[in-house]
Amino acid sequence: MTSTPKACRVELAGQQIELLPDPALWWPAERVLFIADLHLGKAATYRALGQPVPSGTTQANLARLDRLIDRHAPGEIVFLGDFLHAAQARTSQLLAAVEAWRDRHPALACTLVRGNHDSRAGDPPASLRIGVVDEPHPVGPFAACHHPQRQPARFVLAGHVHPTLKLHGRGRDSVRLPCFVQEGDQLILPAFGEFTGGWRVDAAPDRRLYAVGGDAVWKV
């Protein structure tokens, strides 16, 4: 029996938002999903360089996207940069898998805010019907960005740094988890993609951390 994922509800820019454990951000009033750092093809890029890294990450990422779409029925997904990892990721196998994913959701609007990896990998093929824009991209009261930054009059949603935190248990026990990071009028999303690594974020007086573990998100 599969448990129901537990989102963490927060208010950002006067809007009720859900931080999802997939991880993603859900804006229910406008039916928009925000997803950061998919990095499709990262493992394939490393394998092309002769590194013995796991395969199957692309299908795992796309399957998680399918589950999110089935659960929330969004009208739009906004990708906050780094959709493809590198030019080496543009293999016929990967592009065919992404085409098949897109064909499963033909009515879904998709927008990519270009990130630093997108500038090297190139824009997604036109056949994927993904609109491509530069940051900051206004979405209601939000500025959809890839790089963390400040934008006047808008609340920034960003990615890029793949934030994680370290929780300590008894003795020397500890665990490292992806996290959402809020600082002022900015929220940084954890990386959605498998095999992406992360940057450790420490607690600070003006910083709110939301850990992602299993099927839940909670404030730390």
Rank of each mutant, 00 (worst) to 15 (best):
M1P: 13
T2P: 15
P5V: 01
C8T: 03
A13K: 08
G14T: 04
L19H: 00
L19F: 01
L19T: 01
L19M: 00
L20N: 03
L20G: 02
D22G: 09
W26R: 02
R31T: 00
F34R: 02
I35W: 07
H39K: 05
H39N: 12
T45Y: 12
R47H: 10
P54Y: 12
G56W: 06
T58Y: 02
Q59R: 13
A63G: 11
A63W: 01
D66V: 02
D70K: 09
H72L: 12
H72F: 11
G75S: 10
E76G: 01
I77A: 03
F83G: 03
L84S: 08
L84C: 09
A87R: 14
A87F: 13
T91K: 06
E99N: 13
E99K: 07
R102L: 00
R104C: 12
P106D: 09
P106K: 00
L108C: 08
A109W: 05
V113M: 04
G122Y: 04
P124Q: 03
P124M: 02
S127N: 08
V132N: 11
D134Y: 00
D134T: 04
E135L: 01
H137C: 11
A144M: 06
H147K: 11
H147T: 10
Q149E: 13
P152M: 03
R154A: 14
R154H: 13
V156N: 10
G159N: 11
P163E: 02
P163K: 01
H168N: 08
G171E: 06
D173Q: 14
R176L: 04
L177F: 02
C179N: 06
V181Y: 07
Q182V: 11
Q182C: 09
E183Q: 13
D185C: 13
D185Q: 13
I188M: 13
P190D: 04
F195G: 12
D202A: 15
P205N: 05
D206G: 03
R207K: 07
R207F: 07
R208Q: 15
A211R: 06
G214F: 04
V217H: 07
